[in-house]
Design a protein around this nucleic acid. Structure first.
Length: 814
DNA sequence: GCAAGGTC
């Protein structure tokens, strides 16, 4: 029997579609990646009986990135990212091993039916799937077709079956338009982000973001927030006057009347009207009109609307709201929360859905009444063809969820009650006065308003809108204030105002729609992929160069809000070039800066540096600094210059003295390295001379630290190495009073791994067990110590693997 | 360390 593979965009859809097509008779199993399932059944396909295998991917299989060497921020000029830098497709989520999973399932299949979402992204994923599976599928015979595309507009029995009967082909052009979008976003976003970040980080010491990102979605999103900020700032309050009259009838409570002219901006005129009104004490009802107000029934809920409501009614950010919604979905309380659809299918079981809620402690009465009276069809919404609107599936109580609230956001406020009156009724005027008021500025943009603006301008999608909002918060461009109002920070304002000055298109929402127009031509087959890509990249490359050339005008704004790097930070160690003091900038990313040489030197993050006894690197004369990750963490000296400019071929960027292969420097790995790390493959335990009196050695790769010889007076790494394990010997000098050595001895030299005298004076701490202790480790490349014998040129040692190291170390564990 | 788009 032939086998037909079918692939949907996500596991939930594969399940629903398989259930419909197999009429509920499929058998299911988990795939090798644990995330996707495979549903199998026998059925008829193009007049033949076949075995169906329905499975899914999890969104995109691949994602686009630059090839490795173009990911270095220091070595690559951002301008090269527009054309020169090659890109490659990498697996989007390596943990899912999606390519392997698809290949395992597709091997030996004869046909494939692609059930990816019916949008451009889905079309693109079709080809990602085909690229993965076609090499392992059975080859079609002759001119036979073996690739089919199902086009469906909703997940209903009729629609799915209809799609199966009218299979088409995947649309290459639509897929290509997505490829173009990916490449444009990558090249443009990364080029601008790297340039801005490096430029401003090199100039200012107190920027409150370690990354100054730019993107065709996130930047316009920020733009909306700053636009509102500017309106608030430039707002000039204006005086205006209103007339207020109070009238009463008999013993009824007086009522306050509004003026049908509302207000005047001229006090004199207002006063004139008041004077006229004051000429009489009687007020006459001229006419009575009644208006009935009704609010339209709300539309069924889709993702974006849910996010808006979560923000405005529950004060919950979109990212958080999505997390909660996903949890409610997996626990069966609501239907699938990612949908653009606001229309219930005709055969949707509204009553059944409602019945689920009939015993809910909050709305049982309402629900029962609705069921008894019968209900109206919901308002007709939009069917985007993805999932039904978000619907409660199960009744829940507050105690089950803990965080729900009843949401009365839809109510219409009751109008102030007016006494019944008719034409000709007379009232007595109690008072007429002129009120002085001021026009007031608009408020900051609420998150809900921002979501609306983004949706309106096509910035992001329902799935990515929360990500963009989250991005501009994380980059410290805006802060979320009470009432979920988004207030731009100085940094956010300066950036947007800078774009206004240099190239307003960089921040306008049209930047996205203009590009999308071009992309649309590709998907319609009216334009060539390469031409559009080249043309658009060319435009943005020019924009980029203009931006780089004009950066000074953004910098003028930056200067006002931030302090130059030379004026920030504290004097620290000395520069090896000019021998003046470097400044230590603690703000992230922490770094050292020489204002004389105008050079910035990066440092390891998530820690702090101290002066290190004014010792200097023998290679470049920079003063060494001691980096520590915290009071109980590891510490090692480093040379600020070597850290960014590795001095030896076998060193990489970001290495401290504990990894330095200098053959004779007293601070290098060669002088202080003791032995191979007890846990990781490649690390070496290096003596930390700054650790006394709680002496220790620490791995230069992983978190292992070995404490030894507490209270020793002096600890030194000897030139000689151990006969049996090749570790460097250690010389220890104890205080007379505290010496643990026998016979009043104060000095001893031996191997920390093998020496019997040292056995009880060494203990392993901070050991993160990355793999079990007793694994069979091959003799991987180990870095040099083993001085005194077998040393190779370039300072690399060639230590033998200790014979019985594991047994010796068992005693060290606490 | 970058983008935006899928989804877990």
């Amino acid at each position: 029997m032939r086998t037909v593979l079918m692939v949907a965009e996500k596991p939930s859809l594969a399940q629903s579609i398989a259930k419909i097509l197999s009429k509920g008779s499929c058998s299911s199993r988990k795939g090798l990646n644990g995330a996707c399932s495979v549903h199998e059944y026998t059925g008829s396909f193009l007049g033949q009986t076949v075995r169906f295998k329905m499975t899914s991917v999890c969104g995109h299989v691949m994602s686009l990135d630059f090839i490795g060497k173009y990911n270095s921020w220091d070595k690559v000029d951002p301008a090269e990212l527009f054309s020169k830098a090659p890109t490659e497709k990498k697996e989007a989520n390596p943990k899912l091993s999606m390519v392997k999973f698809l290949q395992v399932e597709a091997r030996g299949c004869d046909c494939v039916v692609l059930w990816l979402d019916c949008d451009k992204e889905g079309e693109n994923i079709c080809f990602e799937v085909l690229d993965a599976i076609q090499p392992v599928m059975n080859k079609p015979q002759g001119n036979e077709r073996n690739v089919y595309r199902a086009k469906f507009s909703s997940i209903t029995d009729t629609d799915i079956c209809k799609a199966m009967e009218h299979l088409g082909e995947p649309n290459r052009n639509e897929a290509l338009s997505v490829d173009a979008r990916q490449e444009l976003d990558l090249r443009i976003g990364c080029a601008f982000t790297r340039f801005q970040t490096k430029y401003f980080q090199g100039k200012y010491g107190n920027l409150d973001s370690s990354l100054i990102s730019f993107g065709p979605c996130q930047t316009p999103t920020l733009g909306f927030c700053v636009e509102r900020h500017d309106k608030i700032q430039s707002f000039k309050p204006e005086m205006y006057w209103v007339i207020q009259a109070k009238v009463f009838r008999g013993k009824e409570t007086p009522i306050t009347l509004d003026w049908d002219r509302v207000r005047v901006f001229d006090r004199e005129i207002g006063q004139m009207f008041v004077n006229m009104a004051k000429t009489t004490r009687d007020a006459l009802v001229e006419s009575v009109s009644k208006k009935e107000k009704a609010k339209q029934r709300p539309l069924a809920l889709n993702t974006v609307e849910m996010l808006r409501v979560a923000s405005s009614a529950l004060g919950m950010g979109p990212q958080h709201a999505m997390q909660i919604a996903e949890r409610l979905y997996t626990q069966g309380y609501i239907s699938y929360p990612r949908t653009e659809t606001t229309h219930y299918p005709e055969n949707f079981d509204l009553k059944g859905t409602l019945r689920q809620q009939a015993n809910n402690c909050y709305w049982a009465e309402t629900v029962k009444a609705l069921l008894a009276e019968g209900l109206n069809r919901p308002r007709k919404g939009v069917d985007a063809g993805d999932h039904p609107p978000i619907t409660p599936m199960r009744s829940a109580s507050e105690s089950e969820l803990g965080f729900t609230e009843v949401m009365p956001w839809q109510g219409i406020p009751l109008e102030e009650a007016l006494p019944a009156c008719e034409r000709g009724d007379a009232f007595t005027v109690e008072e007429v006065k002129l009120l002085e008021k001021q026009t007031s500025p608009p408020d900051y943009l609420t998150e809900a308003e921002l979501i609306t603006l983004m949706e309106k301008h096509g910035i992001g999608t329902d799935a990515s809108i929360p990500v963009h909002i989250n991005n501009i918060c994380q980059r410290n461009y805006v802060t979320v204030e009470s009432g979920r109002k988004l207030q731009p920070t100085n940094l956010g304002i300066v950036l947007v105002h800078g774009y206004y000055k240099i190239d307003v298109e960089l921040v306008l929402p049209t930047i996205r729609s203009a590009v999308e127009k071009q992309l649309n031509l590709i998907s319609l087959g009216k334009a060539n992929f390469h031409q559009v890509l080249q043309h658009t990249l060319d435009i943005f490359k020019r924009k980029f160069h203009y931006f780089v050339d004009s950066i000074a005008s953004m910098d003028e704004l930056m200067e006002v809000s931030f302090s130059p790097i030379a004026a920030t930070g504290k004097h620290h160690s000395r520069c090896g070039k000019c021998h003046r003091f470097l400044k230590y900038i603690q703000a992230k990313p922490s770094r050292l800066h020489c204002s004389h040489c105008d050079e910035t030197y990066s440092l390891p993050q998530n820690g702090a540096i101290k002066l290190y006894k004014e010792l200097r690197c023998p290679l470049d004369e920079f003063e060494l600094v001691l980096w520590t990750s915290g009071p109980r963490g590891k510490s090692y000296p480093l040379c600020p210059y070597c850290y960014s400019n590795p001095p030896f071929r076998d060193m990489k960027k970001g290495m401290g003295c504990n990894e330095c292969t200098h053959p004779s420097c007293p601070h290098s790995l060669n002088s202080l390295g003791i032995g191979q790390c007890v846990e990781c493959e490649t690390g070496v335990l290096v003596f930390d001379p700054s650790s006394g009196p709680k002496w220790r050695m620490a791995c230069n790769r992983c978190n292992v630290a070995v404490h030894f010889f507490e209270h020793a007076h002096k600890v030194q790494v000897s030139q000689d190495s151990c006969e049996s394990c090749d570790a460097s010997l250690v010389m220890v000098d104890f205080h007379k009073a505290h010496s643990p050595l026998l016979d009043g001895e104060t000095q001893h030299t031996g191997c920390v791994f093998c020496d019997a005298v040292f056995q009880d004076l060494v203990e392993l701490k901070h050991a993160t067990m990355r793999h079990p202790m007793h694994t069979n480790r091959g003799g991987g490349a180990r870095r040099g110590r083993g001085r005194g014998r077998g040393r190779r040129p370039g300072g690399r040692g060639n230590p033998k693997k200790p014979k019985d190291k594991m047994a010796a170390l068992a005693a060290y564990f606490v």
